[in-house]
Design a protein around this nucleic acid. Sequence first.
DNA 1: CATTTCACCTGGTGGC
DNA 2: TGCCACCAGGTGAAAT
Length: 299
Amino acid sequence: MPELPEVETIARGVDQRVRGDLIRDVWFGSKREPFKNSPARQAKGLEGRTILGVERIGKHIVMHLSALSQPSSEGLRREARPPHAVAAGLPHAVAAVPGQWIVHLGMTGRLLVTTPDAPVAPHTHARLTLSSGRELRFVDPRRFGRLEFRDLAKTKAFAAPGAEPLQIGPEAFAALFRGRKLAIKAALLNQSLLSGVGNIYADESLFRAGIRPRRQAGRLTHEEWERLRLALREVLQSAIRLGGSSVSDYVDANGVRGFFQLEHRVYQRFAEPCLVCKTPIKRIVLAGRSTHYCPHCQH
DNA sequence: CATTTCACCTGGTGGC
DNA sequence: TGCCACCAGGTGAAAT
């Protein structure tokens, strides 16, 4: 389900509503699927900690947690610092033994802030009771999502391996692809090169850059790489502004759908006329994924 | 090592 | 209404 814009929207929404809150109690609904480390370990890492902030890294949602038994910090709640500031430097009051809860939504995962009495959806795998009276829930029918707790005192800081598409500059972007033989779309989807791009935004950015998805990544011209970098940035930023794409059931932390699906120009528009030239949109399978492009506008 | 394919899951849709 | 094939925003292990 969620790619960079959807994950960003959810992370911002969750951050807004739970930053500074204290996790009173944690409930996990199943023992196996979504847990990279055991539910017991995760509960131990979460309970009694204060949520310092929530941010997106690649397609991961990273919740920064205070050391155990730290009092809920009013200062932090008021400050409303941008999420990346939390990662950049934790305040010394809580820097001793912080931890991180890392949520990956897979295809169908949702992270929702609700009231405790809201009906519990099927496939709810985690419920965090917060001292403010809110509840944070993780719901994931297909169970491709993953939950993990990390203790920074014992492991190195979490970082997605790939570059952030919204930050990367022209030279670094070109360097990702130079010399590679795989299709440019497959390269865009490779999270160890770029982190955050998925099937929708790969197709949409290639259309906007006028590049066919099957082209060899290493054989694009420098100008094409740059067009692609800018198209990708533009498409991701627009999608974030519109709250992401709701293709079937995606909703943000407040249960609200996104609107970027209305801006899709090729994704899931097979056989429909290209919005630029009226040529029917093609659909192929590439890297095992449904792939859409305009045979006239993309070269 | 680079690249491709497939399994992992559930649920929705459309054809018969 | 039922059954079946096919499709879906992702990823990592296994195969090539």
